[in-house]
Amino acid sequence: MASQAAFDYQQQVEEIRQAMQCDFVALALVQSEERHFQIRWEYASGNLSQRFRRIILQSGKGVAGIVFKTGKPIFAPEAEKYCTKEDLYSYPIIAAEQLESFAAIPLFKYNRVKGILLAGCRKNNCMSFEKFELLQSLIAPTFGPYYSEELTGN
Rank of each mutant, 00 (worst) to 15 (best):
V25E: 11
Q10C: 11
A140W: 00
F75Y: 15
V13R: 10
F129E: 13
Y147S: 02
K114F: 03
F143H: 07
L135Q: 13
Y147R: 09
V67N: 10
N124Y: 10
Q18P: 00
Y91V: 03
K85W: 04
F102R: 10
E80T: 10
K114Y: 01
I93L: 13
R17T: 12
G46R: 10
Q4D: 03
T152Q: 14
S59L: 11
L117K: 12
T70D: 13
L88W: 05
Q38M: 05
E33K: 10
F52R: 03
K61I: 11
N154D: 14
G115Y: 04
N111V: 11
E34D: 13
A95S: 11
M1T: 06
R17Y: 12
K109C: 06
I16S: 09
A103D: 04
P145C: 04
K114H: 09
S128P: 06
A2Q: 07
G65L: 14
I93G: 06
C121F: 03
Q21P: 00
A26M: 10
Q50W: 00
L138R: 08
L138G: 11
G60I: 12
L29H: 06
G120A: 03
R54S: 14
Q4C: 02
F37K: 08
I93N: 05
T84C: 10
T142Y: 02
R35N: 15
N124V: 13
C22K: 02
L57S: 13
I105K: 06
K72P: 01
A95E: 12
V30F: 02
E86I: 07
R54W: 02
S137H: 09
V67Q: 09
L88D: 06
A96D: 10
K81P: 00
Y89A: 15
A103P: 03
C83K: 11
Q38A: 14
P141D: 04
K131C: 05
Y146K: 04
L88C: 10
I105C: 08
Y91W: 13
K69T: 04
N154M: 11
E86D: 15
K123G: 00
I66Y: 08
P77C: 12
I116V: 15
G120L: 01
R51S: 05
L138K: 13
S128I: 04
M127C: 05
F108H: 08
P92M: 05
K123D: 05
G46H: 05
I94G: 03
A64I: 12
E133V: 05
L88Y: 10
P73D: 06
R112A: 15
L135C: 11
Q58I: 00
M1E: 07
Q58A: 14
C126I: 01
L107Y: 07
E80D: 14
K61V: 14
A104D: 08
A5Q: 13
A28E: 09
G153A: 14
P106H: 03
P106S: 02
A103S: 15
N47C: 04
I56G: 01
A5I: 01
E78R: 15
L138W: 10
P73E: 10
G60V: 11
G115Q: 08
S45L: 11
N125H: 13
E14Q: 15
